[in-house]
Design a protein around this nucleic acid. Structure first.
Length: 474
DNA sequence: TTTTGAGTTGTTCGA
DNA sequence: GTCGAACAACTCAAA
């Protein structure tokens, strides 16, 4: 097709369905160039494990786009400059994108908007990621919500802001296509060692993988979600977080799919409500990010800025490697390393252990998760770390310290989860699986475990560490 | 303006 | 084994 094209700038919205920027470009009738810009210098750009997801997601996106007649262009470099130069090179008429909410990303996109306007290229941004924009839901006095429950009530009452838009069909590429960089040359897949060798057993990055995960959840797990979500040994959660983090599916699509099942009587209101409230947490965390732009650096409650964190490289390394001697913590940290994801319940236990038991700065944990999780983003990861550390948005009057033994016994009673990720404990009886140091010598011998050799002794005594944390956080 | 009710996910103690 | 109270008295949101 001839005529000046519109560029659709893609970032963490790697999908065709319900992509407002792509839809708007398709509706224009002008030729379309989908452009993915990878700016590795952005603090919340995919990194570490995220490179694996990004590679596979882009590969999948490229194929999907080609089925509707479009060619994905890949470029690396500073976001605003790269996108602007590309728009000029392509002789673009407009550049469309879906909004982002992290301070640096907002600044980059704002700069791009100004640059494009000055050059006579039309910029247009859309709401495509959240159910409601962060500035839409306000308290009675006009401020942003600081507690989840009132936010959730307001979101439920208001509902999503827009209707979903379909994927484009038979879109038109331009007659002259600017060249793309080659995905394989970006070197995003790990080699020597290939630490992602098992990721594909757990994940299918891309839009169709996201859709399959949603269907699987609705068919098999949604009805039992309120209880099933807390059992890390089961697939009781939606496992949609990596797909959401890369925008392979929209929150609105998920919201509507759950409502459709509810209307059909296929799931109960209780189950739907519980799950949708978790989806609402994502919106809430983005609101927190928007109004607390330093959320990954500064405690939302300022008095927590003066906690005397311990600098203990050895303890931190033991935590990252899943060698703390607390089986549920170690299973979680090894699940993270092996699969790029950890069950939510175990995230809280492992995070609480780092912050409260080891007294290591939550920001170090946040950075580790940012590197190793497939689903890390600028909002959810920092906001949840702040919640665990107790310096976040909720105002609980006393500090919460998870007991790794109690939590393990409550949520992994048979030890199935621990046995899967900490195989050296596989033969320890359930009674001792979450407290192997209390097992009699002959029990450990029979299970083939020597504490301190096959599996570490506890890094700290939890009861003692708890008293220390209570003293320091007071 | 003042008041009132409530706050994701917890733990421990003691009856 | 189970259950309610204490934790510490704060901050938020709405009436």
């Amino acid at each position: 097709m001839t005529g000046r094209p519109n560029v659709v700038l893609l970032r963490r919205d790697l999908r065709l369905a319900d992509n407002p920027a792509l839809f708007a470009a398709a509706r224009c009738g002008a030729p379309i160039i989908p452009l993915f810009v990878f700016d590795e210098r952005e603090p919340f750009a995919p990194r570490g494990a995220g490179h694996w997801q990004l590679h596979n997601s882009l590969e999948s996106l490229g194929k999907s786009l080609s089925t509707v007649g479009l060619t994905l262009v890949l470029r690396r470099g500073p976001m605003a400059q790269t996108a602007f130069e590309f728009a000029q090179e392509a002789g673009a008429r407009g550049v469309f994108w879906n909004r982002r909410y992290e301070a640096g990303e907002i600044a980059a996109d704002k700069g791009l908007k100004a640059q494009l306007s000055a050059a006579g290229i039309e910029p247009e941004s859309f709401s495509g990621s959240l159910l409601r924009e962060p500035w839409e839901l306000k308290t009675g006095s006009g401020g942003p919500y600081k507690l989840f429950t009132p936010f959730w009530r307001a979101l439920k009452k208001a509902g999503p802001a827009r209707s979903p838009v379909p994927a484009p069909e038979n879109a038109a590429p331009p007659s002259r296509m600017p060249p793309s960089e080659q995905l394989t040359e970006w070197g995003l897949l790990p080699r020597r060692p290939d630490w992602a060798s098992e990721f594909a057993d757990s994940w299918a990055p891309g839009e169709s993988g996201a859709e399959a995960a949603l269907i699987r959840f609705l068919d098999e797990a949604a009805e039992n979600y309120p209880e099933g979500r807390d059992r890390p040994s089961n697939v009781g959660t939606s496992r949609l977080s990596p797909h959401l983090a890369f925008g392979e599916i929209s929150a609105l699509t998920i919201w509507n799919a759950v409502h459709a099942r509810l209307a059909a009587g296929a799931i109960s209101e209780t189950a739907a409500d519980k799950f949708l409230s978790e989806l609402a947490w994502r919106d809430f965390n983005y609101t927190l990010l928007y109004y607390n732009p330093e959320i990954s650096e500064k405690p939302i409650i300022p008095k927590f800025a003066s906690i005397p964190w311990r600098r203990d490289k050895d303890a931190f390394n033991a935590w990252t490697k899943g060698m703390t001697g607390y089986p549920i913590v170690d299973a979680g940290m090894r699940e993270l390393w092996r699969t790029g994801w950890v069950h939510n319940r175990v995230r809280m236990i492992a995070a609480s252990f780092l912050v409260k038991d080891l007294l290591i700065d939550w920001r170090e944990g946040e950075r580790w998760f940012r590197d190793t999780l497939l689903d890390a983003d600028a909002a959810n990861n920092p906001a949840n770390w702040q919640w665990v550390a107790g310096c976040g948005a909720d105002a609980s009057p006393w500090i919460r310290i998870f007991n790794p033994v109690t939590q393990g016994e409550r949520f992994d009673p048979d030890g199935d989860y621990v046995r899967r990720f900490v195989p050296e404990l596989a033969n320890v009886p359930s009674r001792f699986i979450h407290r192997p140091w209390e097992a009699p010598g002959e029990v450990l011998a029979k299970a083939g475990v020597t504490l301190g050799a096959d599996y570490p002794n506890p890094l700290v005594d939890h009861a003692e560490a708890r008293r220390r944390a209570l003293r320091i956080f007071d």
